[in-house]
Design a protein around this nucleic acid. Structure first.
Lengths: 353, 353
DNA sequence: CTGAAAGCGCTTACAG
DNA sequence: CTGAAAGCGCTTACAG
């Protein structure tokens, strides 16, 4: 019940400085030149009154809020933390603040989010879709600018991505060249998803590409989903797989968190990495490098990824009629201890039978 | 350059439904009862026009935006990810969205943040202060409600915290009872900070309390700062310490990330955990449990922590004259492999000389 | 239960 | 370079 008048407005500043509100606005936005002495008077009045502009009013007037949205499936993962950090830093450099949303890997929540985007008053949104419903894309015209991050088979929106298919292929070829023959893909057969439509599909395709090229057979028994893309999700998936008794000598995990969970589970089961099983992750989060066995992974520049997304957002906000653009960020296979095993041909451990 | 009129307003809905804007507002906010047939007509008009309310306008009118701020020193850490996740989930349950900020451990940026809080149009803010400048607290009356999370020797603001001093003491007593005699405190002597004023100080005090009680001497050589509270920060700190040649047989790291960096560095140096050195962290982030050597740590319920902060925020938004309240969240020492060493008295490794 | 009026705090044309 | 007017899209009293 604090009266709103407790907070000074431009009118108060104007009165105190003996000018019109317009002049205060000019000082604030720099729209028009203001003579030095006038400007100093206005600035002093602002200081004396401890004035700050009301961004709701400005937003109402301008149709811009200075806020962008960042929507990720699960904010608790290491990868999300790294991306959030990078986006917030890059956004600040451009004068924006960031509102975060969590889609919890539920398509319904993604949909809600996008349709609610306008009410939240954000100027644009960076969305990491899990399974982007087509219905969302349909609404595109009524929505603020959206940049998709991650792999999406969808060309009506700006996108930033790494070539996950190529990266997965490289990773698997590396595993094969290190002597692996039965490689588990851990992270998603993603039963319901159309192959290739999202990150999961891309990585799975790259995995299969490499097997084919290497003359190895792919098998549904070696493509395993995990409950979620977290450390515990990876651990649970690995535990189930070990219980199945299927033979394997390497793991391609679809994220580093999954890989770390799998690594833990292998160690608990007395299976040594890399002596018995090789393991490779995805994303190069900080603790991949510092894991008990440092983790081979696919790395890319998270800062660059964030900047690219913001640049796309920025130019689309300037012109919504632009053709959709896709910005590919280079990736790199980072080889660490987890795949530096004994020479090819040495007997690898088989999983229990 | 899209005309703002592209977006339907309440007036359009009202015209289409043949009612006044006020009635549309009533339907939307539920302020007044609306007769069933009227309401249905209005709702259909909203659907047909794909109407969503403009929250900037509503915010301007109501003085509320539905947005709260969450400010953490470094969004990239595992602890930040866990807290961000918990806060966003709890906020959504209360109908709020969350804007994140990063203070990068710089007091100046915290100060900026707080003074800019009003312009960002947030209804309240959750701030994890590193060194909260008194100047910030001075401005409290001109700011939206703030809840501090973490330990702060400051009683003019609502706070949520765990008893870090008691927790650190328990952890060290546990290390001592496991046979440790020379325990490194890794995370901050925090040269400039007044002891006890922030998280660092609390944990350091608890550490010293336990040493004193155990009849062990504390020594500046065993209190080490790290460049930052990250995994690599912990690794760098540990590396420097090992180079110093000071003897030690246990480590109390001030966060799990620091602990994991230290663990990695010890392993690299051929020092075994827990056989040669015991190590204990703080916060119980997910990968503490899944580390190469599962990490003993101080755990607490992150969800409860977040909910408590939002509850305090909520009630203060209802009444700014309330006495400041402090909500303590219980913690628990979680003993895992990293401190399950050989029995006390067995020869521990000394660091190199 | 519904309507007509006024105003939240800004900024954009439009004049000087 | 500065001012007076109008309006962004809502909602809160105030009447009916």
């Amino acid at each position: 019940m604090t009266p709103p008048s407790a907070r000074p407005t431009m009118r108060h500043v104007a009165e105190r400085a003996g000018v019109s509100p317009k002049t205060v606005s000019n000082v604030l936005t720099g729209t028009a030149q203001v003579r030095e002495p006038t400007r100093l008077r206005v600035e002093q009045a602002m200081r004396e009154l401890d004035f700050v502009p009301n961004f709701s009013a400005r937003g109402l007037r301008n149709g811009k809020t200075g806020v962008i949205g960042l929507a990720l499936p699960d904010l608790a993962t290491a990868f999300s933390a790294s991306i959030t950090h990078a986006v917030v830093e890059a956004a600040h450099a451009r004068g924006w603040v960031v509102q975060v949303e969590e889609t919890a890997a539920e398509p319904a929540r993604e949909h809600d989010l996008v349709t609610r985007a306008r009410t939240h008053q954000i100027d644009g949104m960076i969305l990491n879709p899990v399974r982007l419903e087509d219905s969302v894309v349909e609404h595109l015209d009524h929505l603020p600018p959206i940049v998709l991050i991650g792999e999406v088979e969808q060309h009506r929106t700006d996108r930033v991505f790494i070539d996950s298919r190529a990266a997965a292929r490289e990773a698997v070829l590396h595993l094969v060249s290190s002597g692996a023959q039965r490689i588990l893909a851990l992270g998603g057969a993603e039963a319901g998803a159309v192959l290739g439509k999202a990150t999961v599909g891309q990585r799975l395709q790259g995995y299969r590409d490499a097997l084919r090229e290497s003359g190895l057979v792919s098998s549904p028994a070696l493509e395993l989903e995990v409950p979620d893309w977290t450390i515990s999700g990876g651990a649970i998936g690995m535990r189930e797989f070990l219980a199945s008794g299927v033979e394997f000598d390497a793991v391609l995990a679809f994220t580093d968190s999954i890989a770390l969970g799998a690594l833990h589970e292998l160690n608990s089961a007395g299976i040594r990495v890399p002596e018995d099983v090789l393991i490779c992750g995805f994303d190069d989060v900080e603790h991949a490098r510092y894991a008990g066995t440092p983790l081979t992974t696919i790395g890319f520049d998270h800062e660059r990824y964030a900047s690219a997304a913001l640049d796309l957002l920025s130019s689309r906000m300037g012109d919504r009629t632009l053709e959709p653009r896709a910005h590919k960020i280079p990736h790199q296979l980072l080889i660490r201890s987890s795949t530096l095993g004994p020479p090819a041909g040495s007997g690898r451990r088989k999983s229990q039978k």
